[in-house]
Amino acid sequence: MSSPGLFIVKAGYLDVLAQKDSVIHRLDPRVKLLTTLLFIVTVVSFDKYHLSALLPFGVFPIVLIVLGGLPAGYILNRVLWIWPFAILIGIFNPLLDRQVLLHLGSLDISGGWVSFISIQVRFFLTVSAAFVLVAATGFNTLCLAFNKLGVPSIFVIQLLFLYRYTFVLADEAGRMVRAWQLRTPLRKAMTVNTFTLVLGSLFLRAVARAERIYQAMCCRCFDGTFHPAYRLKWKMADSLFLIACILFLVFFRFMRPVTWLGEFVTGMFS
């Protein structure tokens, strides 16, 4: 049986990684958020038949993983875990687009297969970049960055609360599921009726908890505004990192270093 509590803690391991100290961890969260978004936009801006031009973008997550001292195996594991979804959404392309696009020796490759592989490459690049962002920044620091970049405080605060109490409620939900399971050993999943009852009482508990939390906040003189205990400082290193990333993205997006390199190498052998 999968335990929601355990599951969420496993996912939360990304956040544990964020407590490490490295060149990447020390960067301002805003710069990491911006470069990651730029990276994703650049990757998906290639049209669907582009394949070779996408590959060098792998440098971005790989370098961040190494400089950030992040466990590549864990991140790859997380990416692979949801890979089936990407296969599912791409699988129609080879079936529907049979126009031959490439000839590799005697092998004819259809446009559908090229775009299928392109979707998979995009998937690996965008998903690993997002995981690296969280693992090198941490959710709370990211929220601070959202706030600094103009997201309203009220949204950011309840987002922080959501994250904090996901661990508590997932644990509660896990206990309820276990209690149900122990008395219903022959079933794999709840019936809709049981499910609504469990959900209903979980909701009432959540509301009661929210009330107690609000009381606890009031007891410590909460007056409606939040004062973050940490401040963000934009440093020289942040500007340099941003510029380096933009140069990297522009170079690989608009120049054709891959083609040059390929032509150079194939030229040597022919």
Binding site: Q158, A189, T191, V192, T194
Partner: peptide
Amino acid sequence: VPLMGVVGAFVFAAQMINFTVP
């Protein structure tokens, strides 16, 4: 504000419970 956050956490926790589709 805490209510919104905790109810969000509730939705999250609820999404992790599977039920049988009749």
